[in-house]
C-alpha cells in the first residue's frame, strides 16, 4: 500500500467521522453547519485524490470548483436559517426546536 494514499483515505474517513460525531453530539445550530463543512472537506479531498489516482486531474478540478460554489451557497442558506431561528427563539439551541411532532 502506498503510504500517501493510505494516509489520504484515512484522513478523509476521520474528517467524515469528526463531522458526523459533531452533528449528533452538539446542540448548537451553527456548530451543526460547521460539522457539515468538516465532512465536505473530506469529500473535496476524495475528489482530488480520485483525479490524482486515475490521472484525470483536469476533470476532478472542475468538479471541485463547482462543488465549492455549491458548498458556499448551502453554508450561506444554512447560516441564514440559523440566524432567522435565533431571531424567533432567542437562542441557537436545537433542543428548542420542538414545534413539529407526531
Amino acid at each position: 500500500m502506498n503510504i500517501v494514499s493510505a494516509i489520504i483515505l484515512t484522513a478523509a474517513l476521520l474528517m467524515i467521522i469528526a463531522g458526523m460525531f459533531c452533528l449528533v453530539r452538539t446542540y448548537n445550530l451553527i456548530r451543526i453547519i460547521i460539522a457539515i463543512e468538516i465532512a465536505m472537506k473530506a469529500i473535496t479531498l476524495l475528489l482530488v485524490f480520485a483525479g490524482a489516482v486515475n490521472g484525470n486531474m483536469a476533470l476532478s478540478q472542475t468538479f471541485v470548483i463547482t462543488m465549492i460554489v455549491i458548498e458556499v451557497i448551502v453554508a450561506v442558506v444554512a447560516a441564514g436559517i440559523a440566524i432567522s431561528l435565533y431571531h424567533k427563539n432567542g437562542n441557537v439551541d436545537i433542543r428548542e426546536l420542538t414545534n413539529l411532532k407526531g
Partner: peptide, 25 residues
C-alpha cells in the same frame, strides 16, 4: 497533489469566504 486551481478556490472561498460567513453568523 497538483490540483492548483482547485487549491486556489479552496483557499480563497472555503477558507476565506466561509469563515467570514460563519464569523458573522
Amino acid at each position: 497533489l497538483g490540483a492548483f486551481w482547485a487549491a486556489i478556490f479552496e483557499l480563497s472561498v472555503c477558507s476565506g469566504l466561509i469563515t467570514v460567513v460563519f464569523v458573522s453568523a
